[in-house]
Structure formats: structure tokens, C-alpha cells
Amino acid sequence: MSQHDCDCATVQQVATGDRAILPKGAKTIPIYVMGKRYEVPETLTIMKAMEYAGFKFLRGAGCRGGICGACPTVYRKEGDYKLHFGLACQTVVEPNMYLAQIPFYPANRASYDIEAIEPVAESVHALYPELFRCVACNNCTKACPMGVQVLDYISAIKQGDIARAAHLSFDCIQCGLCASRCMGELPQYHIAQLVRRIYGKYIQPKAEHLRKRVQEIESGKYDAMLENLQKMDKAQLEKLYKEREREPDMAPLGTWMPKDTQYL
């Protein structure tokens, strides 16, 4: 990768791309990757530290931004009995941490037909009877790197509250750490996915304006308009672009209408 030289003549930028760097004044610390010692710069994330040490990920790296669930990692600190959980792309290395990535953990997933499913908790119970093997140990919640209240949503499902479970589980990134720690052997994140889809499809109120718009589009209402736009030259388009009215920021949805309604 070439030096970063485009528009920053006044400042020397120390990093290019994603290659790990030693920030000014940083010292190195020992970490143990699956028991093996490496010296890495402090302040890096586990992911960048491992790359600094020379690892090239195939499994265990995805979005690198804390949202895809590819890099769940379990670690202990020296002299500390506790297990810690985190995402390698988000967790900063600490001296003498012993870590292992768990990029995949087997979990049972039930197939279903979203069009045919009865939108009630009993459908979920029937697909995942192991729900009732939950002993409420809360290991799932402790393991969640997203801070999701896993046990709470599992309890909500058992109690039949789909809406509550859907909202409680919304931040789930399906990394599987909950399932890896479950005494009842539940696949929590698959159950949560099912519950959210039932909620989104059947319980959340439908968007009436969307239904109307779909009808309008399917009736061909906008076809000629779009056909016309494609034939316009830049000058015509620019004129129309400048003439657009802007919906006021603070206007409540569904209340404002433009003066010019010919294109609606």
C-alpha cells in the first residue's frame, strides 16, 4: 500500500488502510492466542492485534465493525477464574489475556413456513420444545457481547409475550455465544429470529400507505412519468431538481403536501 499522500501534506498520518500500527508511545504486551504467547501493541483490538502478530483470518473475521457476529471470542485473564466474552473486532487487548475465538457453534434450527405459521407463542413452543429446558441460569446473558438480555427474552417467549421478546432480542447479532453457554442446550438466537419475524409480519401493525403505494405502482400509475424522466436531458433534469420543494424537517409524517402535486 502506498503512503497516504493525497490531501494531508500538513500532517503525517501514521496508518494506511487497516494495517495495525503502533500508536505513538504505545508499548507491547503479551497475549496468549489459544495458549501461545504473542507480543502485540496495547490499545489494539484483539482482531487487529492478531493480524499484527501475523494471523490471516479466514474464519473469525467479518464486518470488523461489531455487527456481523463472525468473531465471538472467549478469554480469561491471568489469575482470574472468570470467563469473559467479547467480539474480537471490538475488544481491546489486555496483558496476559488467554483467548480463543469461537467462530461457529452448532445450534439446532427449526425450519418453518412464514406464510403458514400461526402467529402465536404456541407455534414457537412447538418448533422449539427445548425452550422449557431453560433453567434460568443466566449464562446466556452473561455471554452476550451485545448486552442483550437473553434470559429475559427467553422468559418472555415462554410466557407467550412475542412483542416483548422481539424488542428485547433486537440487538442480537447471532454470534452464538449464548448457545455455547446454555445448560438447556437452547439455540436462543434462532428462536429470537423466528419471534422477530412473527412480530414483524403479523403483530406489528401494517403500513396502510405502503399498501396503497404498491397498488398504484402495480397499476402502472408512474410508468409514463418514469419513462419521461429517462428521456430528459441534463438541463431539464437540473431545472426540475432545483424546483423540488423540501418537506419541512419538523412536519409530522403524513401531514405535509407539496404545492405542486402533479408528480404524486
Binding site: R196, G200, P205, K206
Partner: peptide, 21 residues
């Protein structure tokens, strides 16, 4: 809008107002 309706029908949880808008 057809795509949004498709996602809604698949059970995606859009941000909505209480009336479904």
C-alpha cells in the same frame, strides 16, 4: 416501495408509528 413491502411481508421489523405508518 415493492421491495419495502416484500421485506415487510417477510417479517422485517421496520421502525413504525403506533398506527403502522
Amino acid at each position: 416501495p415493492l421491495s419495502i413491502a416484500w421485506l415487510e411481508s417477510l417479517g422485517m421489523m421496520f421502525n413504525k408509528l403506533p398506527d403502522g405508518r
